[in-house]
């Protein structure tokens, strides 16, 4: 795994994923470890994402690394029309690792092919966001004690939600039973279902939310965005059908935890926040430890 880029969660085997999660546990216990000794990590956000960038930059600082880079492409040579290849080659001269977020799909894979230093994909358009997936897996394992044989319910926009796609694909290696809740228009794409089928696992699809809550070990909520619907009337019909309210958790299992990649709008009612089954805020914090584990592994210092 040393010096190898992480572009898509499929780049890692089950064993490699577990190795990262184990290491993240160590960082959760002891986050400040000066392992990078001032080595330089580039943080290139061609598209702004404060949440992801701060998580990565905190991870780098806690490892004793230095950060160079930019938080948006606006003030850089990229806005003057420099090609992605040229930017990457230039930055690779100054850094030992590049973390990049880019609005164009496939840009991280391409960067990993032209760069002399490894690339961590921090999101490429609607395609992949593997560190989000790792932190989701970490959160699931931490709250359930295992990743194996769980009943996981995904709710909302399963068609466009890249975090859902990556997590479904990753969980297909862990004998998961999938419950897929979405409006007809936003069902999980067949390209993702293919992975469930290949693993010979079962999934069920629902348009109604309530029945699956008592079965679930994890409920993974996502936001349904207005712009996904060409017809605004269709959006109005479904927008309130997939909102989780505290009372709906009355018959849920004790061990169930609610996850959400954040930011949330209204799909989880704020009265859920106080419920011990709500885990979405801790989930975000886990991102720092997972990213520390990943960076330390790729840099070969752990």
């Amino acid at each position: 795994m040393k010096n190898r880029s992480l572009v898509s969660i499929n780049d890692y085997s089950k064993e490699e994923i577990i190795r990262i999660l184990d290491l993240a546990e160590e960082f959760e216990k002891q986050p400040l470890q000066n392992l990078l000794g001032g080595r330089v990590v580039a943080s290139l956000f061609f598209e702004p994402s404060t949440r992801t960038r701060l998580s990565f930059e905190t991870a780098i600082q806690q490892l004793g690394g230095n950060v160079i880079g930019f938080a948006s492409a606006a003030s850089t040579s990229v806005s003057k029309g420099e090609s992605l290849k040229d930017t990457i080659l230039m930055v690779a001269n100054y850094s030992n690792l590049i973390v990049m977020r880019h609005p164009v799909e496939g840009s991280a894979r391409y960067a990993s092919e032209v760069s002399s230093v490894p690339i961590i994909n921090a999101g490429d358009g609607a395609n992949q966001h593997p560190t989000q997936c790792l932190l989701d897996l970490y959160s699931i394992r931490k709250t359930q004690g295992t990743l194996d044989n769980l009943e996981v319910t995904f709710v909302g926009d399963l068609k466009y939600g890249r975090t859902v796609h990556s997590l479904v694909i990753a969980l297909s290696q862990f004998n998961t039973k999938f419950h897929l809740v979405s409006p007809e228009e936003l069902k999980l794409p067949s390209a993702v279902k293919r992975h469930i089928k290949e693993a010979k696992l079962s999934y069920e699809q629902y348009t109604d939310f309530t029945d699956v809550i008592p079965k679930s070990d994890i409920i993974y909520m996502t936001r349904i965005q207005r712009e996904r619907f060409p017809d605004p009337l269709e959006y109005e019909k479904v927008k309130n059908a997939y909102i989780l309210e505290n009372a709906m958790l009355d018959n849920s299992k004790d061990n169930v935890r609610i996850l959400h990649p954040l930011p949330r709008v209204n799909e989880i009612s704020t009265d859920v926040d106080q419920n011990p089954k709500a885990y979405y805020f801790q989930q975000a914090l886990n991102g720092v430890f997972v990213r520390q584990a990943l960076i330390a592994t790729i840099m070969g210092v752990k």
């Binding site: 090609s83 290849k85 164009v104 799909e105 496939g106 840009s107 358009g125």
Partner: peptide, 13 residues
């Protein structure tokens, strides 16, 4: 590539 937002349609790839 059919995807207009694919890097192969945006850069020389």
């Amino acid at each position: 590539c059919f995807n207009p937002n694919c890097v192969t349609n945006k850069e020389e790839v």
